[in-house]
Amino acid sequence: MKKLKERWGIESNIQLTIIFIVFAITGSTSAWLSRYACDWLGLTKTNLGLVYTPVRLILIFPIYQILLVLIGLLFGQFKFFWTFEKKMLRSMGLGFLFKA
C-alpha cells in the first residue's frame, strides 16, 4: 500500500480507503446503469445477439468516466479523480479532450 500511496500522492490511509470505496461504487453503478442505458436505446440480447455484451461494455466506459469524477466529488476527492481521469484518457490517446 505504501507504493500505491506514493504513486498516487496520497498521505493517509483514510484517503486511500475513500478512493477504493469510490472505485467500488463507480464500477458497480456504471455496470448497473449500462443496463438501463441499453434499455433506453432499445438494445437487447434479442435484437443484437452476440454483439450485445460488447456494446454494453462500450457503453459502460463513458458512464464510468463521468461517474468516477462525480462520485469522487461527493466523497471530497475531486482533485484526485480529475487528475486520475486526465492521466487515464491521455494514456488511451484521448488527451486532446483536455486541451484548451
Rank of each mutant, 00 (worst) to 15 (best):
L67E: 02
K99A: 00
W32F: 11
L41P: 06
T26Y: 08
K79S: 14
V69S: 09
Q77W: 12
L70R: 05
G42F: 12
L70Q: 07
L48A: 04
S91M: 02
G49D: 12
A24E: 01
I58H: 01
G49I: 11
W8T: 07
V51M: 10
R56L: 01
L70K: 11
L57Q: 09
L16Q: 11
T44W: 02
R35A: 15
A100W: 10
I66C: 06
P62C: 02
A37K: 09
T83P: 00
Q15H: 03
M92H: 10
L70G: 08
L59V: 02
R90Y: 06
K5H: 07
D39E: 14
W40D: 03
V22H: 03
K2M: 14
L70A: 12
I19Y: 07
F75T: 07
L48P: 04
G72S: 01
V51A: 15
R56V: 01
L89G: 00
V22M: 11
K86M: 04
S30K: 02
G95L: 01
I25E: 04
S28W: 08
Y36D: 11
P54L: 05
T17W: 12
L57S: 08
N47Y: 08
I10C: 12
R7A: 03
I66H: 10
R90H: 10
C38P: 02
I14S: 12
G9Q: 00
M92L: 10
K45V: 15
V51D: 13
K99F: 00
R7Q: 08
F78W: 09
L68E: 10
F84A: 00
V55D: 06
L48H: 13
Q15D: 15
F61S: 05
G72W: 05
K99L: 04
F96S: 01
V22C: 05
G42N: 13
L50G: 15
Y64V: 04
L73T: 15
L16H: 06
R35C: 13
L97P: 08
T17I: 12
K87E: 01
G95S: 00
I10Q: 07
W32M: 15
L68K: 02
M1W: 09
I19T: 12
E11M: 07
F23R: 10
L68R: 06
F20V: 08
F78L: 14
L57N: 03
I71W: 07
L43Y: 09
M88K: 02
V55N: 03
K3R: 14
L57T: 01
L97N: 05
M92C: 00
F80T: 01
G27I: 14
P54I: 12
W40T: 15
L67D: 06
G72Q: 06
T26S: 13
W8S: 05
W40F: 11
V22D: 08
S12N: 10
V69C: 09
E85C: 01
I60L: 09
L70P: 07
